[in-house]
Amino acid sequence: MSEEASGVVKKFLYINRKAPYGTVYALESLEVVLIAAAFDQDVSLAFFDDGVYQIAKGMDTKAIGQKNFSPTYKALGDYDINKIYVSKESLDARGLSKDDLMDLKYEDEDDDWAEKDSIHIVNSEELADLMDSQDVILSF
């Protein structure tokens, strides 16, 4: 990536509110996140409403002829994307809990590469605060 890209670090939030496969939003968002990771910004991801289904575990897409891109979320830690916020209200409404989600982790460089959880379950008030504190919000 070019040198001009470095410099000011802004807070970027990617908002994911759509289920995977039925529409292309989830995959598009993931690709943008991976591409933009090269710019070394302060990135957070939020999953709420049907977006929580994007990180559900146990997907098997063989029979629908689409690529199962859910394993790629597990690479986000390698891309230094480790702030993933998931709405408690959205999980509750869907009868889901953290156990139904993939185990997304990262290795903390500042803590002897200790493996830590990337996922934080938050309520709507915390999500509102998160959105309110951003420089850039990208919505999918």
Binding site: A56, G58, M59, N68, S70
Partner: peptide, 9 residues
């Protein structure tokens, strides 16, 4: 197939 794709098996 749609159930399994979405991890809802």
């Amino acid at each position: 197939p749609d159930v399994n794709a979405r991890g809802m098996k």
